[in-house]
Write a protein that binds this DNA or RNA. Structure first.
Lengths: 197, 197, 197, 197
DNA sequence: AATGAATGAGTGTTCATTCAT
DNA sequence: TATGAATGAACACTCATTCAT
């Protein structure tokens, strides 16, 4: 809807005829660099190399490095929100919910990239008000999903708890026992309200 | 004798021949820069300017920027651990504990610097194993303090919850109501075990 | 069209948009610096200044200073080999050969640059195996040229003798008499074998 | 004679009561660095580290880096001249002389340090007139020693040849056969004149 | 006599960004 | 539309040298 092949007149992002996924490939590469080296390490050159595109291609598609970073975070949140939502499609009972959240926290290396990016975004947003709009929307969306099961108040607490648990899991040398995570989440989660019981 | 503490009128730097606190001043300056600009923004020059010492002085006292950063984080944790511990000296009943923790989360701009540095350290530690030793010791110490009131298991959950609440507080545009924070902490905190009831 | 070769009056640098010989100019400048200040004195900035290009241009064309030095030496050997070969095109008799070699040793300031660079290369090659490949090719080529007149064994000795004579000539405050050089070379050169007598 | 324990009044170098060999140890360390890294690599710090003395000790004993280098070369030539002279004490016949010189050229890694330093000095002297006085004295002395066996003219040629042979030996990946070196020297060496036949 | 602290100049290198093509 | 060449600012770091002690 907001992307047209031809005839665009506004200043909105163009779509290229050839290699239409180049933009996304660059964004993914930027996220890769972000995970690997942190916000300090992101440069046009590294992103270009990782995306396997010429240097000029990066500066062509993104008017500045800050813009590239911002759009990469946009893209990240977009993906992560969808993924987060999809986790709950089959949740029916309280125990299902707990199980999903435990998996979210414990989810091994596969979840690491995602988690690291989340914290990078949070920290970047501390200093960049433009990004703060994004984190707020993200938080709101996450809580909304949880709220469907818990009500808004519990959702907020749960969200904070998950954040802390994930950070600790990332930093721990040896993984927390699954039962401990389970107990922590269960304690925060009274009998479900919401669409089901 | 040839150096006067007071009466400096110009902004120009004085010759400081004997300056035994220079190291610490540089470390504090590094933390200031870290708060203001993040790990990405720390440079010898900015630190030197903030500490009001010549550039060469920073490289003289710290053999590399990584080393400076590491020692700054050490210094931060040392201070913060002491401060954290002192918060609990007068805690006697469950409600005291809750109150202290709510204050920790809500504590306004005065606590901002401290909190931001904590998250910067966490993020840096994700990539630097040397820093991970520091975060682990820090986490261990924090939990030990909490454990005196709650037992180890609850302490762990509580610590995670606090981490998440603080991050959300930092990012929120308008502060969470104090009651919400209170309720979240209270929920995580069963009747006290430990040295008192 | 918008750039004029002549008529530059100020020392200021012009914008040079299309400058296909820039690489070579940088290499020549590097050799100039090498002659003037030795391997110890070569820096990006000096080379840039001598080549009349911006600093960034040097680092753009050569990925490191070592690479610049290596390519400069390559370029030097390429030129010098050709020059060396051309010296012998008209040599027919033994006396012609001697005369050419005497000139090689005695050849005044015009030859100084070339000779100094040769020794710089030798010394650099002592520590850098990559350069050693270059000196070996160079030595092989030089000897091959001499061999056409003398056979390989004599060529080797002659080559060593010339090297020593040139070094001494460079270091002497007053030039060796031409006859002494002549005699030294003549002694090392038995009746010619090779393509002529 | 030129070094007194006490009561020095002139500006000449002092002798320290403690650690009287520190000066020489520093000079040897400087030569080590020179061999290892070339003239480009010599710094106060590296020399101090190699000599295992404090940084201040180097600047205390030598008023500048150039002075340190110059005195290191002095010290080198002094040692090498003595060593060179001693090589010939037992030379009686032409074949002895040849044998000594072949050994000089072929002498393996043990001679490498010495040879490298010789070329470093030559190259440095190309640009520093003060050092040129030293190289000239050195050359004169070497030739004088050879002259005792060969007469001055032959000594000069021989000296040049040796220089070239040594350089080639240093740069060659596989050593020249001993016979080739022998033949080269023998050819340059007519029946001996001098103190013996 | 001896040395560690200190500093400003200078190094190689990386980089965001601009621009001609 | 797309890109390689280009450049000036900034970076981390090294260093010779000075100086108080």
């Amino acid at each position: 809807m907001n992307e047209v092949e031809l005839g665009e007149t506004s200043g909105a992002r163009r779509v290229r005829r050839h290699d239409p996924e180049r933009r996304t490939r660059i964004l993914d590469a930027a996220l890769d660099v972000l995970v690997a080296e942190g916000a300090a390490g992101i440069t046009h050159r590294k992103v270009a190399a990782r995306a396997d595109v010429p240097l000029g291609s990066v500066t062509y598609h993104f008017s500045s490095l800050a813009e590239l970073q911002a759009q990469a975070f946009d893209w990240y949140v977009e993906q992560r929100t969808a993924e987060f939502e999809s986790l709950f499609t089959e949740v029916e009972a309280r125990e299902d919910l707990i199980e999903v959240l435990v998996e979210l926290v414990q989810g091994g290396p596969s979840r690491r990239r995602s988690a690291v990016l989340g914290f990078e975004l949070h920290l970047a947003a501390l200093r960049d008000p433009a990004l703060r709009a994004l984190t707020q929307k993200w938080t709101r969306d996450s809580r909304a999903v949880l709220s469907r099961f818990t009500g808004p108040e519990i959702a907020g607490r749960l969200d904070a708890l998950l954040e802390g648990l994930i950070m600790h899991a990332l930093l721990a040398t040896e993984p927390e026992p699954r039962e401990a995570t389970h107990a922590a989440i269960a304690q925060a989660l009274p009998p479900l309200t919401g669409r089901d019981t």
